[in-house]
Structure formats: C-alpha cells, structure tokens
Amino acid sequence: MTDVAVDPAERGAARVRWIRSRMPLLAAARAQFAESRPFSGHRIGMSLHLEPKTAVLLETLAAGGAEIVATGNHGSTQDDVVAFLRGQGMTVFGARDDTLEQHHAHVAAVVDAEPDILLDNGADLAALVAERGLAARIVGGTEETTSGGDRLRGELAGRIPFPVVVINDSLLKAIGENKHAVGQSVVESFMRLTNLMVPGRRFVVAGYGWCGRGVAHYLRQFGGKVAVVEVDELKAFEAALDGFRVGGPEQLNGDLARWGEVFITATGHPDILTPTFFDAVADGAVLANCGHFPWEIDVAALKAGAASVERLDDAIERIGLPDGRHVILLAEGRMMNLAGREPKGNSLESMDLGFLLQSLSLERVARDAASLRVGAQPVPDDIDREIARRMLAAMGADR
C-alpha cells in the first residue's frame, strides 16, 4: 500500500476538530465572546505550548475579536497545529525542531509585533518586555505556570507595571489540571515512551507541589513503589501522611539515588539532578522531567561527563557513564508529556477548565485592568467559582 501524504494543515484541522468537540466550556465561552467581542482592538501576544488544545483556546480568543501573534515553547511545538493556525489567519512562529536560539528569536518576534496583552508561559514574554523597556504599552496579561509566577515575583519583581493573572495560583487549576491531569499524563507518557511496567517499579518523584502530588499518586495507583523528595517541611509531612517514603536532597543524592529505578522531577527549580546525583545513581536508572523549564536535570553536565551518548529513539537516550554504569534520559530533560514522542499533554477536560480560566482572566484584563493590582496575582475569586460551577455542571457531578 502506498502512503498518501497528508497536508499538515489538514491533519492539524482534523485533530483540532476532535479536541474542539470535547471542550464544552470553551465552546460556550466562544459563543459568548462572539457576541460581546471583549478583545476588539487588542493584539494578544502568546508564548504557550502549540498543540491542538491551545488551538481551541486561540480560536476562542479570536472569536472575541483578538488579533493573535503567537509562538510555542521550546521543544513542544506541533507543526501540524502551527500550519492549521496559520490557515486561520493567525501569525504563528516556530517549529518542533527549533533550536533554543530560534525559539528565543520567535519570542522576540512576538514582542516585536507590539501586543498589548500577553498570554505567557514561563514569563518569557514578560521578561523580554521588561528587558526592552516596553512595559508601558502592555495593558496586562496572564501567566500559565508556577515557574513563570516565581519569575514574576522574583527576578521580575517591580519591573512589571501591569497586572498579570497567574493561572497556576488558582486552586481550581491546581486540583483539576496540575494534580489530576499532569499526574495522569506523566504516568501515561512514561508508559508510552518506554513501554516499561509501572507495577512493582521503584519511582522517586522530586517535588510534592500539586504536579508532584499527582504524579506520585497516579504512579502508586498503577502499582508503583514511590518515594518523594521535598525540601519544604510541610509538604514533606503531607507526603509522609499520604503514605510515601520521604527524603530530602541528601537522600536524593544518597540512598534514594541507589534505591530508585525511575526519577521524575516536578519542582520548577533548576539543578535537582546534578553531577553529585549522577555519581550515585543506580545503573540503568531512567531520568525524566515534567517541570516547565528543561533545567531540573543538568543534562549539559550529564553529557559532558559521559563516556557515550546513544540515541535509541527520538525520545530516549542511553548515557554511558565513565565507570560503566548508564542512565536513560527521556525527552532530553524537557517536559516528558509534551516534548516526547506522540505528545498528548493533559486531558481534554482539564484543559477545557484551564483554558476557560485563561479566557475569562484575559477578558477581565481587556475590559477592566484598572480593577486589578499591578504585578503577579491569583485568578479573581469570582472567576474561579464561576468556572467551578460550570465544570461541575459539565461533569454531571450531581448524577
């Protein structure tokens, strides 16, 4: 049988059709925005994973009158979705095989297009706007991640003179998307990428925030033996009461390095798995990350000190260590559930909820930025509660 080439835009359109059909919250918002047009006269600059669910979000914003200029995040862009969005008249930069330098150039291109509202992921747009002294032209924006929220409150504190609603500060998102959707998708991605068994295997999860909680719980539900590494005493206490083995950085670089068979980082912070860990880790261990930035595993140091690097698959590398041990690295240390082979990301229902949070928060920024304080802040409580009501109704939770 002869393979028939499929136009990327057509493939993207087909994938988006399925996703769109299963996102009723965004469908209702899209119809509402088409009437109210809250984004008329606004250009929204976006840096967010470009995959089918994001395409439905952008359709929703465009229905409300927004002009869209967008790029993805490094390593997770899906080319057929880019082709589809360009066919819808949106300005979209980026490709899956972009280098980090090319990605930074695409972020700069979004800023160069002079958006007045930012839809950010990891605070890349906000940081560049601040660096270039362009903040005065920004009405406000949203930030998707904990990592980006940390940057806004840390290195960018006092440099962002406009409101930024941090979607990940929402308890609704923490429960629905981070704990349950990330937990599910990371475990699913581990099984899909490696084809290894979860039951009986020893896993070490670094970080017991909402994402780490979800990963640890879903691994255990599938029969994995799970240890948690956490530096925050209260989170470590919670993990212990939840029945997990618990340790700190010393154990991660000591007993747990030798005990674990799979290590998954979920902290949002750099340098979690470092040369000290590589010197101690058991032969054959699998290393993976689900945090936003690819800095939790020190991949550069790992490869610099390697005796050999062998690519076994587009998402699997075998790193030979000088003393004869080896480790397996998944997705080059990037987000394994979005940067790996055949990425699916979080569940449709969770992203319907999460992207409705984005949509209504952006609507609040566009219509009433003056009601919001300057800088990073959580989703307004009335938006959280309204979406909770809509999600419960969509789930049929009363049945």
Results as ranks from 00 to 15, higher is better:
residue 5 A to T: 13
residue 5 A to R: 12
residue 6 V to L: 13
residue 22 R to S: 11
residue 26 L to M: 12
residue 30 R to Y: 02
residue 31 A to Q: 15
residue 35 E to T: 09
residue 35 E to C: 06
residue 42 H to R: 13
residue 46 M to Q: 14
residue 47 S to G: 04
residue 47 S to Y: 00
residue 49 H to E: 10
residue 50 L to N: 06
residue 50 L to E: 06
residue 53 K to Y: 05
residue 54 T to L: 14
residue 55 A to C: 12
residue 57 L to Y: 03
residue 58 L to G: 01
residue 58 L to N: 05
residue 62 A to E: 08
residue 62 A to N: 03
residue 67 E to V: 11
residue 69 V to T: 12
residue 70 A to T: 03
residue 74 H to C: 08
residue 74 H to I: 13
residue 76 S to V: 13
residue 77 T to H: 05
residue 81 V to E: 02
residue 84 F to K: 09
residue 84 F to Q: 10
residue 86 R to L: 09
residue 87 G to I: 06
residue 87 G to L: 07
residue 90 M to N: 01
residue 93 F to N: 09
residue 96 R to D: 05
residue 96 R to W: 02
residue 98 D to A: 11
residue 100 L to R: 15
residue 102 Q to Y: 01
residue 103 H to D: 11
residue 104 H to N: 12
residue 105 A to H: 12
residue 106 H to W: 12
residue 107 V to D: 09
residue 115 P to F: 07
residue 121 N to S: 11
residue 125 L to T: 06
residue 127 A to C: 01
residue 133 G to E: 10
residue 135 A to L: 08
residue 135 A to M: 02
residue 139 V to M: 14
residue 139 V to D: 00
residue 145 T to A: 07
residue 146 T to L: 15
residue 147 S to Q: 10
residue 148 G to Y: 01
residue 148 G to K: 00
residue 149 G to W: 04
residue 150 D to M: 15
residue 152 L to E: 03
residue 152 L to I: 06
residue 153 R to L: 15
residue 154 G to A: 13
residue 155 E to H: 05
residue 160 I to G: 10
residue 167 I to L: 12
residue 167 I to C: 00
residue 174 A to F: 02
residue 174 A to M: 15
residue 178 N to K: 03
residue 180 H to P: 01
residue 181 A to R: 08
residue 182 V to S: 13
residue 184 Q to K: 11
residue 184 Q to A: 12
residue 191 M to N: 00
residue 199 P to Y: 05
residue 209 G to A: 11
residue 211 C to A: 13
residue 213 R to G: 06
residue 214 G to P: 09
residue 215 V to G: 04
residue 216 A to E: 00
residue 217 H to K: 14
residue 224 G to C: 02
residue 224 G to K: 00
residue 226 V to G: 04
residue 230 E to G: 08
residue 233 E to H: 06
residue 238 E to W: 07
residue 243 G to V: 13
residue 245 R to P: 00
residue 249 P to N: 10
residue 250 E to F: 08
residue 250 E to G: 02
residue 257 A to G: 11
residue 257 A to T: 00
residue 258 R to V: 15
residue 258 R to N: 05
residue 264 I to D: 02
residue 265 T to W: 03
residue 272 I to Y: 09
residue 273 L to G: 04
residue 276 T to D: 15
residue 276 T to K: 15
residue 280 A to P: 01
residue 281 V to L: 09
residue 281 V to C: 15
residue 288 A to P: 10
residue 289 N to P: 01
residue 292 H to N: 07
residue 295 W to V: 14
residue 302 L to C: 04
residue 303 K to V: 14
residue 304 A to M: 09
residue 304 A to G: 15
residue 304 A to E: 13
residue 305 G to V: 04
residue 307 A to N: 09
residue 308 S to V: 03
residue 308 S to E: 14
residue 309 V to K: 06
residue 311 R to K: 14
residue 312 L to R: 13
residue 312 L to P: 01
residue 323 D to S: 03
residue 331 A to M: 01
residue 333 G to S: 08
residue 338 L to S: 04
residue 338 L to C: 06
residue 338 L to M: 14
residue 341 R to K: 14
residue 348 L to A: 12
residue 355 F to N: 01
residue 357 L to N: 12
residue 357 L to G: 02
residue 360 L to E: 14
residue 362 L to I: 07
residue 369 A to E: 05
residue 370 A to I: 04
residue 380 P to A: 07
residue 382 D to T: 08
residue 386 E to Y: 08
residue 388 A to Q: 12
residue 391 M to N: 11
residue 394 A to H: 11
residue 394 A to K: 03
residue 394 A to C: 07
residue 397 A to M: 05
residue 397 A to V: 15
